Simulated assay, not measured.
Amino acid sequence: MIIIGEKINGSIPGVARAIEEKDAAYIEDLALKQVRAGAGYIDVCASVADEKEDEVLKWLIACVQKATRLPIAVDSPNVGAIINVLCFCEQPGLVNSVSMEREKADAVFPVIADTDWQCIALLCDDKGIPKTLEKRIAIFEDLMAKAAAYGIAPERLHIDPMVEMLCTSEDGVNMITEVMRCIKKQYPSIHITGAVSNISYNLPARSMVNRAFMVLCMNAGMDSAILDPLDQEMLGMIYATEALKGEDEYCMEYISAYRDGLFGVKK
């Protein structure tokens, strides 16, 4: 599982305060904690006014790169801001994100085409988030056509089928997991990702819902996720699910993670 650590986000009060006070030590510590927990990318999201976003993203990137060599996921709904700060990253990471909305893919794909940057692609367009499997797959096919036109291989893409609130869903997560299966069947080397915690908005005991959802998604093909790597129970669930799926030979990764204290549950 590719874990994209979500903790450095200006929408989180502690991070917002660190941004306001330019508390680099706080950001560096958050980055290091996520690295030690097994994150594969450190997501940085400014969540500030547009006129400040470039400056804040550059500062966050500098803080993270001082703390770790782990690649960065540059996160913004504004693809212009993403493009402006990619050059400040010391190594290729992950663009978060593009979609078929307002020609975002056409803006980002040519910039990363001849690089090793990977990219999250959302299954939405100018009409919003589709309500049916067929329409999400249609957007996926349009995205893949654009990626192919720019020479971007499927394995460089992390497809986000758009995780929505469970409490407003008519059929649970059946449609979204079927989207994942369809995508993986067409492109086995592509990555399936998503913001796991979106599923539990407005529900009590959100962590329980998030963990159950993670298991279902992994069984449907998800191999990349935007989540809190400091949630030890979630990490335990991920390692256990990989072992149960036959993706962890002799359960060695599960055992090693337990011994390293990545998930602290009772024997």
Rank of each mutant, 00 (worst) to 15 (best):
D23T: 00
A31Q: 04
I19Y: 08
E55I: 03
D23R: 01
R36Q: 09
V48F: 13
E53N: 09
A62N: 02
E55H: 11
I61K: 11
A62R: 07
E55M: 10
Y26C: 10
E28P: 08
D23C: 08
A24F: 00
A25V: 11
A62T: 00
E21P: 07
C63Q: 02
K22M: 02
E51S: 13
D23L: 01
I61M: 05
V35H: 04
K33G: 07
S47Q: 15
W59I: 03
V48P: 11
I27A: 04
Y26M: 13
E55N: 07
V56Q: 10
L32G: 03
V48A: 10
A39C: 02
I61E: 02
G40T: 07
Y26E: 07
G38N: 01
K33H: 09
C63Y: 05
Y41L: 06
E53H: 12
I19G: 02
L57G: 03
D54I: 15
I19S: 11
E55F: 09
K52R: 15
K33D: 07
A25D: 04
E55C: 13
W59K: 01
L57V: 06
V44N: 12
A46P: 10
E28H: 07
V48Q: 12
V35N: 00
C63D: 09
A31H: 07
D50P: 10
V44G: 09
A31Y: 03
V56A: 13
A49V: 10
V56P: 05
A46I: 12
E20N: 12
D54A: 13
Y41N: 02
C63W: 06
L57Y: 01
D43P: 08
E51L: 10
A49H: 13
